[in-house]
């Protein structure tokens, strides 16, 4: 009863990396850019300063990793949510293409913008 091989170890690695990086970094981004600054608790830094910060090679790597790995984290987790929560395992092929496909598209778009800052 040998099992069909699959690429789950690969997707799981991206899921784990994305889960870790998003857990550490996304809450502060949301709190700061999306809530605290718009509510006037802090002043929004001006555009020039932010671009300068974002252009640093480490910032680019950081932004790209945060975007891409978060998307792959979602792709893998949501795939299994659809299997278990909605019992859609029989639609496996479509779900796999939709989830990981969206993450790959998002990764490419993210990469283009990160490089064009």
């Amino acid at each position: 009863m040998a099992n069909k091989k699959n690429n789950d170890p690969f997707w799981w690695t991206l899921f784990g990396a994305g889960g870790t990086i998003s857990a550490f970094f996304i809450p502060i981004h949301v709190a700061l850019i999306g809530i605290a600054i718009p509510l006037g608790w802090f002043a929004m830094p001006d555009y020039e300063g932010l671009v300068e910060l974002a252009r640093h090679p480490l910032s680019r790597i950081y932004l790209f990793a945060l975007i891409s790995l978060s998307l792959f984290h979602w792709a893998h987790r949501f795939r299994f949510t659809l299997y278990d929560g909605l019992q859609l395992k029989h639609l496996e092929q479509y779900i796999v293409v939709f989830c990981y496909g969206s993450a790959i598209v998002g990764t490419v778009i993210g990469l283009i913008f990160v490089l064009s800052i």
Partner: peptide, 14 residues
């Protein structure tokens, strides 16, 4: 690993 890294193995666990 032959049994557990593929379909229905450890990565099915959520």
């Amino acid at each position: 690993n032959e049994e557990l890294l593929g379909e229905g193995g450890i990565y099915s666990c959520t």
